[in-house]
Structures are given as C-alpha cells and as structure tokens.
C-alpha cells in the first residue's frame, strides 16, 4: 500500500472516481449509446427493407414488362387473326354478292326474255287478226259485184272460219 500511497492513492478520491465513472457510463449507455444503436439498427432495417422493396419492385416491373409484351403479342396475333377472318369473310361476302347479283341478273334476263316472247306472241296474234281482217275486207270488197249477197256472206263466213282456224 505504501507504493500506492507514493503514487498519490487516496481512498476517498479513488471512490469518488469510481462512482463518477460509473455514473457517466450509466448515463452514456442509457441516453446516448442505446438510442444510437437502436437508431442504427432501425436504419439498417429500413435500408434492408428498401432494398427488398426495390428488388420486389424490379421483379414486378420485369414481370409487368414481360406480361405487357405477352399481351401485345397476343393482341397482335388476335388482331391478325381478326383481320384474316375479316378479309376472308369480305371475300366470301363479295363472292356471294357477285353470285347473287349474277343469279338475279340472269333471272331478270330470263323473265325479260319470257316477257318479250309473250309480247311477240301477242303481237303476232294481233298482227294475224288484223291481217285476217284486212284479208276478209279485201275478199268482201273483191267479191262485190261478182257474187250475190248471200254467197258473198257465205264465202266471207267460210273464209273467216278458215282464217280463225289458221290463226
């Protein structure tokens, strides 16, 4: 203890220093170290979470881009199919329309022809009737003075009958 005393060891001062340091250490631990370590830990967690979120977001973004590409690709395919179908349908419609039109035209022509033939027949009949009348008139006029009225009537009637039969 003498050596210690030579170096200035004083029990009271020694005790004071011990208490002093312990108090400072306690305060340092409670009000500085703990909060700072907690803060650092929180910050680490926040950063880690941030990185995780960023990774998740990146993954989601990549997925979204891929999905977008898929959707665009499928939409293109669908649209191409639709266009193809539409073209085919349009062709079919045009062909059908053409066919229908052709058929209609043919029908119209046919009916026109039939009508024309009917008309022709009618006209021929009328012409025949009028020719016959003219012929009867001419016969009547030619027989005037050649035969008596009775014969004349008989000839005309016979002639008319013959003509009727012929027409």
């Amino acid at each position: 203890m003498d050596i210690l005393n030579n170096f200035g060891f004083e029990p009271v001062l020694f005790a004071a220093q011990v208490v002093n340091f312990l108090v400072i250490l306690f305060l340092l631990q409670k009000f500085a170290l703990k909060p700072i370590l907690k803060l650092l830990d929180d910050r680490k967690q926040t950063i880690a979470e941030g990185f995780k979120n960023a990774e998740t977001a990146q993954k989601a973004l990549t997925q979204a881009v891929e999905e977008e590409k898929k959707i665009i690709r499928s939409a293109q395919q669908t649209s191409e199919q639709l266009i193809d179908t539409a073209k085919k349908q349009a062709k079919e419609i045009v062909t059908l329309a053409r066919q229908e039109a052709k058929e209609q035209v043919e029908e119209i022509i046919e009916s026109a022809r039939a009508e024309m033939a009917q008309e022709q027949k009618k006209l021929e009949k009328e012409l025949a009737v009028s020719v016959a009348r003219t012929a009867v008139n001419m016969v009547e006029k030619a027989l005037v003075g050649l035969v008596d009225q009775k014969d004349q009537q008989k000839v005309v009637e016979k002639f008319t009958e013959k003509l009727k039969k012929q027409v």
Binding site: L13, Q17, I24, L27, F31, A32, P35, I36
Partner: peptide, 29 residues
C-alpha cells in the same frame, strides 16, 4: 474530509462536457 484536487476539477469539467454532449445528442437525435 474530502480533498478537492486539481485533477478532480478536471474530471468534473470532463463530466460536464460529456453530459452536455449526451444531452445535445439525446435531444437532437
């Protein structure tokens, strides 16, 4: 009975400095 030495005065100053530091840090954390 306690002798107040010049080193004790220095320790007290150091204590005050540390406490001010702790207070400032704790307040503005």
């Amino acid at each position: 009975p306690v002798p107040f030495t010049n080193t004790l005065l220095h320790i007290l100053i150091v204590d005050v400095l540390i406490l001010v530091g702790i207070y400032f840090l704790h307040k503005n954390l």
